[in-house]
Nucleic acid binder design. Structure first.
Lengths: 243, 243
DNA sequence: TTCGATTTGTTCGTATGTATT
DNA sequence: TAATACATACGAACAAATCGA
């Protein structure tokens, strides 16, 4: 009798995650109620709840008592709280404004290909942008997206979005970023970055190499980000805050 | 009728956390079994499990099927996985070796006092140390501990410990670090730090300001850490990895 | 405004499986 | 092997929030 070494609630969880990845349930929408899910998956409500609990802990779903359970949306608030770690010296967060510098198609070099899990030479988008906080340039981004995931993305669409980048990728292409890995280093600013950030060449800047992932560890974007940290800091929280 | 606006499982959770903070149950030890806790707190096993679930998610407790539920110990493995974020360029972690440079009593300046939640002039310990990875100096630490929490700590004890710093604070003084906040910036190395790390003055280094917290957000230590990031990186993981 | 239907949140209880000692 | 401990799964009842009639 189902001795697959995988508990039923994990099986249910995986099936829900698969439906989400396939786009059967879209972000912002409510998924079926717990009694309905219980019947659909042939499990008790308690088991459904345990599966959903884990997806909620991973920010994949959001519960609201009395309303339902919803597929997470990358609202600005969500981005600010989960994925944006640049704060002022007192630890306060503020949403940055984006200044798009260039948007063009290109082909993946070996390094980018490896990070995005694609083949060298596969088409990508290369985006350069400067983010400002309180009017000052603080962050210089060099972003690479695998073109395959984002058909007919254009600079127009990118520039005219009214949400964050990840919000755009989710609402227009159904790709949801769930997890990010960043490697940080202190480096001397190269001429181009220095110019973008209004620094002298050689001044220390924080260089961040990011890879973002969607369901099943699918890479979504990789970027190299340079941050001037004279007025701002990178906030890292380790361990877990008690709810 | 207990209509306190606080669910029973939260109440149980808080009571367990209080017992831990008071040192009634010590690290490494097993807490009572779930049926015993259920009787002690007058709740069902399911409710106990929900309370313990949250404490496990916060790394306060660790469950082991067939054995029991234990108070977390700051083993080296635990430290490496949860609180140590310096990795090589491929993302691999290694435990550093410590070279103690100085250990002395001092009084808190305004900045330190604020961070540690004590009064200016209160006694503290000031510790300087260099951490090496693969024999090379990589991290220069300047640590401040509130003396009140750690009576009769000496340089001898500190130097002769056979665990990590947080392991020592836990095993000898019963103080458990649960959560850390770090603010990162890229700065030019000052002469002293440069000498410690074998760099030229002015080379870019990663400066990390840390505050660590125990139960109920009690500050445990604050430190300023400088890291040379030519061979190593700071790893930051945002969002949650699926179990 | 009120009421009822719907949905998630909390709590209880029981039975069985699996790992450890 | 037997006892103990946590893990999984089921079911039931009521509370609290939401929403539309």
């Amino acid at each position: 009798m189902r001795d697959n070494r995988l508990p039923l609630y994990r099986l249910v969880k995986r099936q829900i995650a698969d439906l989400l990845r396939e786009g059967r349930w879209k972000h912002g929408q409510a998924i079926p109620s717990e009694p309905l899910l219980a019947r659909r998956f042939g499990a008790s409500i308690g088991t459904i709840r345990k599966a959903v609990d884990e997806l909620v802990a991973e920010h994949v779903l959001v519960r609201q008592q009395g309303r339902g359970t919803f597929v997470s949306s990358h609202t600005k608030d969500y981005m600010l709280n989960v994925f944006f770690q640049i704060v002022d010296r007192d630890g306060r967060k503020e949403l940055p404004a984006t200044r798009l510098q260039s948007f063009r198609r290109a082909r993946a070099d070996a390094r980018t290909a490896e990070r995005l899990g694609i083949a060298r030479g596969d088409p990508i988008f290369r985006i350069e942008a400067v983010l400002t906080l309180e009017g000052r340039p603080v962050i210089a981004d060099s972003i690479r997206l695998p073109a395959k995931l984002f058909p007919d993305l254009t600079g127009q669409i990118f520039a005219n979005r009214d949400s964050t980048i990840y919000g755009l990728l989710q609402s227009r292409f159904g790709v949801t970023v769930l997890r990010i890995e960043e490697l940080l280093a202190a480096v001397a600013a190269e001429a181009r970055v220095a110019a973008q950030l209004g620094l002298q060449t050689g001044e220390p800047v924080l260089r961040i190499e990011r890879i973002s992932y969607s369901y099943r560890d699918l890479p979504v974007d990789t970027r190299v980000r340079h941050v001037r940290t004279d007025r701002y800091r990178y906030l890292s929280e380790l361990g877990k805050r008690a709810p």
